[in-house]
């Protein structure tokens, strides 16, 4: 068959080599982008927070600050705003304490299997509300129903109390089960949620701030 003019397009070695090159190229590009992304999503430091340097994922000590989520004209979507200092469970947490608390919270979020009912950053199961900005949810604000219901006067204490005895404070027929969360674990979880709400998620969930604003003005969503 040597005299026949064989097209490269029907040659198995040609496609094998092409497949190898394309796969290799795509993998190298992915690895390169991964290095860049890892740099951008690694946690900031306490110094960044003090200096007001914006990090996509701030240091654990962000729990010592007020966090908001507002429309940014420049970026065309909502972004987290880290504001003035505010006490968290009645105190300011040192770098070590905050890191330890966040560690406990993240561990608890995994061992209690939060992700198989809720979504975290939009990933997980779809049986319970998204937790990405749960810390900022109007339900927990001083005008919301959860503080009076749990008999607590701050957002974090109300959340912790709810997490310890969730089925005692039902809001809907579908309830959160009691998962045996201890008082310490609950504090850790609230720190984990507050930290997650400070992550720059490129505007996800959208329109969250608008609804939160309407809630403050007393507009109801009765349907």
């Amino acid at each position: 068959m040597a005299n026949e003019n064989l097209s490269v397009w029907t040659s198995i070695p040609f496609w094998r080599r092409s497949a190898a090159w394309v796969t290799g190229f795509a993998s190298i590009l992915l690895i390169w982008l991964t290095f860049d992304t890892l740099g951008q999503i690694s946690m900031g430091t306490d110094e960044d927070l003090k200096a007001g340097t914006i990090k996509r994922v701030p240091a654990p000590t962000v729990i010592n600050y007020n966090i908001d989520y507002q429309m940014s004209k420049k970026r065309g979507h909502e972004v987290p705003i880290i504001g003035a200092k505010e006490p968290f469970f009645g105190k300011e947490w040192s770098v070590e304490e905050a890191a330890e608390l966040l560690h406990l919270g993240k561990l608890t979020s995994q061992s209690k299997n939060c992700m198989n009912c809720h979504t975290l950053l939009g990933n997980g199961a779809y049986f319970a509300p998204d937790l990405t900005k749960a810390w900022l949810d109007p339900m927990w604000s001083d005008k919301g129903p959860m503080m009076p219901m749990t008999g607590k006067s701050t957002r974090e204490e109300a959340m912790a109390e709810f997490l310890i005895n969730p089925s005692q404070y039902p809001t809907h027929a579908r309830m959160m089960p009691n998962l045996g969360i201890t008082a310490d674990e609950a504090k850790g979880l609230v720190a984990f949620l507050k930290h997650m709400s400070s992550i720059d998620t490129n505007g996800f969930p959208r329109n969250f701030s608008k609804t939160a604003e309407q809630f403050k003005l007393g507009v109801s969503h009765a349907h």
Partner: peptide, 15 residues
């Protein structure tokens, strides 16, 4: 999502 912005309340209204 579009109307109630993925809040706790929005989630349950939709459910």
């Amino acid at each position: 999502r579009a109307e109630l912005g993925a809040t706790w309340n929005g989630f349950f209204v939709a459910q």
